[in-house]
Design a protein around this nucleic acid. Structure first.
Lengths: 182, 182
DNA sequence: TTATTATTCGGAGCAATGTTCCGCTTTGTC
DNA sequence: GACAAAGCGGAACATTGCTCCGAATAATAA
């Protein structure tokens, strides 16, 4: 409500430039380490990967749950933003949908260990899951509609159904499902 | 099959006297620490409580799961052996049953944290649960029959049903249920 | 009983990890 | 450029799991 800059993302308000940069670096590094060493990976390892000190991690993410949560949201966000982007860059809407599903699958694979990490905070996990659905469902719908309009896929498929189906396919299988929709 | 002493519990075969003594001491100490500090309590703490060195713990129980499992079995055993004992010492079979249920409830309360500790070894947990039922059901039945014969309780109550009922009552309630069967 | 041998005990020591703290650096502002 | 505030780095400390081996103790033989 003041005269200060009203813009900026909600999660990065009035931070110093290096702080914002480090936060992004940390999210990327943590995501990488999580997939290789699990969500219980030592803080030092994440700090080393990101090339920052440990104090920096603790300043940005006081608890491990904070970090895990942030990484998760970050992944969701990246996946969501990739939707329109792919639609603009891909050869066809159908191709965009396929590429997006690839991203989505990658994301789901890393999602598994997450439940364990948040077992002591089921409310937060639930909140995260609803965010996951709310954020990604419209994106999926947009891609789906475009693919239907372009005639690359038969109409009638519901976005939630599709996401749910892909999710189920990823249970037990972590090979590369070159998903062929129908 | 040899000429050596054929007796002795299956779990304590040909051990040195001090080893057996320490094992018992450890089970008691661990049980106590588990209820106050949870099953993730530091090994040092248990060792200190038992008045032994850490090497002693690791020799008897190489992994934490081994210790937790042993404590659990020990509790079951104590509860099972208390059945006939109470039947002989209590004023009436009904009283014996009531006292036994008190013990049983105490045991159930501590049982909760156990599932967490064995989450990485569900097969062992399952085995333990069947042992739990197999060992305690006959004891409960004996007490129940005696109480029925003495007229303190109406017949028809099944031991498994009773145990199950008590178990359910203990979910969410840890006050003292002075259980009044019907 | 005493000597001998096999077990068991104790806990120092090492490695891994979580967490804090404070001097130094970078950034934003005037 | 000078200054203050914000942020950074990582040394340092605390906790814990686990190993290892000389000392102590129990079982056995003489």
């Amino acid at each position: 409500m003041s005269t200060e800059s009203p813009a900026g993302k909600a999660s990065t308000r009035n931070k110093r430039a290096d702080a914002v940069r480090n936060q992004q670096t940390l999210l990327a590094a943590a995501a990488e380490v999580f997939v290789t060493s699990g969500v219980d990976a030592p803080i030092r390892q994440i700090a080393a990967k990101a090339g920052v000190g440990m104090g920096t991690i603790y300043r940005h993410f006081p608890t491990r749950a904070d970090l895990v949560t942030a990484v998760y949201r970050h992944q969701i966000e990246a996946c969501a933003e990739a939707g329109p982007s792919l639609l603009a860059s891909a050869d066809s809407p159908f191709d965009a949908l396929r590429q997006w599903i690839d991203l989505f699958v990658d994301f789901l694979v890393t999602k598994h260990g997450l439940a364990d990490a948040l077992q002591s905070d089921s409310s937060r996990f639930a909140a995260l899951h609803t965010y996951f659905l709310d954020r990604l469902e419209p994106v999926c719908a947009q891609l789906l509609d475009a693919a239907v309009d372009a005639g690359g896929i038969r109409p009638g498929t519901q976005p939630y159904e599709l996401m749910r189906g892909i999710g189920n396919l990823c249970i037990g299988r972590d090979s590369d499902p070159r998903y062929d929709p129908r």
